[in-house]
Design a protein around this nucleic acid. Structure first.
Lengths: 131, 131
DNA sequence: TTGAGAATGATAATGGTTATCACAAGTTGT
DNA sequence: ACAACTTGTGATAACCATTATCATTCTCAA
């Protein structure tokens, strides 16, 4: 099933950006260009593209969802205090494989590996109060 | 820094449950028992326990956050359509290690590895519409 | 007892996401 | 071309988990 025009437009915009975008971000960007798209449509297609395996998403501690093309196999460090995230340059796991027994009919589309902890800045801030 | 009484109470309740609990779930459970706890306090302590490395959390596609003791090193399959999640029996990665260069001052507390895709049920439901 | 500071919790506010629903666009059959 | 029907769209309202507010309660030392 090829993508529809709007789906393609959305995916193209997502690929154009180096970083991850939230639904709101994406809507704002598309709104500026020619061919704007309503917010509801953005979220609709993000979900559809996700189910097609074209887009992956992860959630920040704030609850906000960030989307990126599924082909980007990036992993992240996220601070549980300030919420800042950084992208790992190299993947720490060399093979992530699930055998059929583990899957039990489930068809994997993408995966996320995230490390949560405290960034240097927040560690320092807390040091005064309690080691 | 030892846990406060309320923090300990909350962590104990979390450990008592086999599955993961949302903030709302946890609040409801504590409300029933003796020694109830306000919703704000539940969320406050969940965040603190997370920063202490005692509790980990992950987000469902719905945006809801699920909490569990950090000591549980479980991974999950999550359906991007219906949102159902299942727990993997065994860990698919044998060593998840980050070297200092990758960390850059970040102090990891816990990590999450999640697989997103379509569960068997949702695959069947979509089969009629489009292969 | 008294006062300063921390903890608590009922409630209001926040804000990303989803549901609603009327309308536009496309499709088919005649 | 026209009608009947399906699908896609988007402004807006509704949803709901989470967070902020703030008055009250608790803690504890002097």
């Amino acid at each position: 099933m090829p993508l529809t025009a709007k789906q393609g437009q959305l995916l193209k915009e997502l690929k154009r950006c180096k970083g991850e975008l939230s639904g709101q971000d994406l809507h704002a960007r598309l709104r500026k260009g020619s061919r704007p798209m309503g917010l509801a449509t953005v979220y609709r297609h993000l979900r559809q593209l996700q189910q097609l395996g074209e887009v992956r998403c992860r959630h920040l501690p704030s609850g906000e969802a960030l989307y990126a093309p599924a082909e980007r196999d990036e992993h992240h460090l996220t601070c549980v205090d300030c919420g800042s995230t950084t992208t790992l340059e190299s993947c720490p796991v060399h093979s992530v494989h699930l055998d059929a027994g583990q899957l039990g009919g489930f068809r994997p589309l993408f995966h996320t590996l995230e490390f949560f902890g405290l960034c240097g800045e927040c560690q320092q801030r807390h040091q005064g109060a309690a080691g």
